[in-house]
């Protein structure tokens, strides 16, 4: 069987289109410092693997999957020294408020079990569907759906928001 020639776009076009999304997802999963490391590593891995890709479809999802794995690795390696779950003690006011739009939500998300936290971050920050979330977490779409719905239920009760 001959492999069809895949016409991949120039890698620079991927960077220009998605570098902010990659950075944001990596930061949401691993924190600002480790997140930037994770994003850089993710781009290095993606660049190395790029010419061997067999499909030019869903490149954003492919990038975010790599980003999620790098963010998980970086985060796990650092966990003993710097738990991300440590919520900052004071409410943010003044000029910093814009840099941190929804602190209650942030705290509640960080108190979720890790798999749930990653799943909802990938789903909502990364805007991936359950297939994409599942690929990034090495699980099935059904399991992704469960992680997300359990996480949403916990967040609703913690934040006191109604089902709408």
């Amino acid at each position: 069987m001959t492999r069809e020639k895949v016409e991949l776009p120039p890698f620079q076009a991927l960077i220009d289109a998605h570098w902010r999304d990659v950075a944001r997802l990596a930061r949401a999963m691993a924190g600002p410092v480790d997140g930037d490391d994770a994003a850089q590593r993710a781009w290095e891995k993606a660049y190395a693997a790029y010419p061997a890709l067999t499909s030019a479809k869903n490149l954003r999802s492919w990038l975010l999957t790599i980003t999620a794995r790098c963010a998980t690795d970086v985060h796990r390696a650092r966990k003993p020294q710097r738990p991300l779950e440590e919520a900052p003690p004071v409410a943010v006011e003044g000029p910093d408020a814009a840099a941190w739009p929804d602190p209650d939500l942030w705290r509640a998300v960080n108190e979720l079990p890790e798999r749930q936290r990653f799943a909802i971050t990938l789903k909502y920050v990364g805007d991936l569907d359950h297939h994409g979330v599942a690929a990034a977490l090495d699980t099935t779409p059904a399991a992704s759906r469960r992680l997300v719905s359990d996480a949403l239920a916990t967040l609703r009760s913690k934040l006191g928001v109604e089902d709408d």
Partner: peptide, 19 residues
């Protein structure tokens, strides 16, 4: 949740990758 963001008191801009 789609607007969920890390606390970023330093307003540090994310960097473009270096390859």
């Amino acid at each position: 949740l789609t607007r969920l963001a890390m606390p970023d008191p330093g307003h540090t801009e994310p960097k473009r990758p270096v390859l």
